[in-house]
Amino acid sequence: MPNGDTERRSLVLRSGLDLCLLALLENQTIYGYELTQRLAEQGLPVAGGSSYPLLARLERQGLLTTELRPSTAGPPRKYYSLSQLGRQALATGRVEWMNTVEAMSALLRPGQRASTTTAATAPSTSSAVLATGTADATR
């Protein structure tokens, strides 16, 4: 893959990684290393050095809750789960992501002319929720 394609893929991955982590935690509690393994299984390889700071940020924003549990193979593990605010951020982030993907796909499809009106142009609060951890975008 040419370097430009690698950089583009990396940028796309970084922009949606928070949503991917939230989605993995939607119905289960998972520890950090297992989260990176599950991302890799889905074709989204992420180094632990990238995912742990993001998990810490999501926790600080109140989107995740954590719990230390004993491990049979070493020190206790930090398990992550979604908070109520995290569930809200995931729901709104999914809508925003899908609208963006739909609009971009329409533009990138060969031989297709994109509509000038798409759902992606509608205002959304999900970016503010993911960035601030609250639906109040004025904070």
Score class of each variant (00 low, 15 high):
residue 3 N to F: 01
residue 6 T to S: 09
residue 6 T to I: 15
residue 8 R to I: 08
residue 9 R to V: 02
residue 10 S to F: 11
residue 10 S to Q: 13
residue 11 L to N: 14
residue 12 V to T: 08
residue 12 V to F: 11
residue 13 L to D: 14
residue 14 R to K: 14
residue 16 G to Q: 07
residue 16 G to N: 06
residue 18 D to N: 00
residue 18 D to I: 08
residue 19 L to Y: 02
residue 19 L to G: 01
residue 19 L to E: 02
residue 20 C to T: 13
residue 21 L to H: 07
residue 23 A to W: 13
residue 25 L to E: 00
residue 26 E to I: 08
residue 28 Q to H: 14
residue 30 I to L: 03
residue 32 G to R: 13
residue 34 E to L: 15
residue 35 L to R: 04
residue 37 Q to D: 14
residue 38 R to I: 06
residue 38 R to W: 13
residue 39 L to T: 05
residue 39 L to F: 04
residue 40 A to G: 07
residue 40 A to C: 12
residue 42 Q to A: 15
residue 42 Q to N: 15
residue 43 G to E: 07
residue 47 A to G: 10
residue 48 G to K: 07
residue 48 G to P: 11
residue 48 G to C: 05
residue 48 G to L: 10
residue 50 S to E: 14
residue 51 S to T: 09
residue 52 Y to L: 10
residue 53 P to C: 03
residue 53 P to V: 03
residue 55 L to N: 11
residue 56 A to P: 01
residue 57 R to Q: 09
residue 58 L to G: 02
residue 58 L to Y: 08
residue 60 R to L: 11
residue 65 T to E: 15
residue 66 T to M: 05
residue 71 S to W: 07
residue 71 S to H: 08
residue 71 S to I: 10
residue 71 S to M: 05
residue 72 T to M: 11
residue 73 A to V: 02
residue 78 K to G: 04
residue 79 Y to W: 11
residue 80 Y to K: 09
residue 81 S to R: 07
residue 84 Q to F: 00
residue 85 L to Q: 14
residue 90 L to R: 09
residue 91 A to M: 06
residue 91 A to I: 11
residue 92 T to S: 06
residue 92 T to Q: 05
residue 93 G to E: 02
residue 95 V to K: 09
residue 96 E to W: 01
residue 97 W to F: 04
residue 98 M to H: 11
residue 99 N to M: 12
residue 100 T to K: 09
residue 103 A to L: 02
residue 103 A to G: 05
residue 105 S to W: 10
residue 107 L to T: 03
residue 110 P to W: 04
residue 111 G to I: 01
residue 112 Q to K: 09
residue 112 Q to N: 09
residue 113 R to H: 10
residue 114 A to R: 03
residue 114 A to S: 13
residue 119 A to T: 14
residue 120 A to L: 00
residue 121 T to Q: 12
residue 121 T to I: 10
residue 122 A to H: 12
residue 123 P to R: 12
residue 125 T to A: 11
residue 126 S to R: 07
residue 127 S to N: 11
residue 130 L to C: 02
residue 132 T to Q: 12
residue 134 T to D: 13
residue 135 A to F: 01
residue 135 A to M: 11
residue 136 D to C: 02
residue 137 A to R: 14
residue 137 A to T: 05
residue 138 T to Y: 09
residue 138 T to H: 06
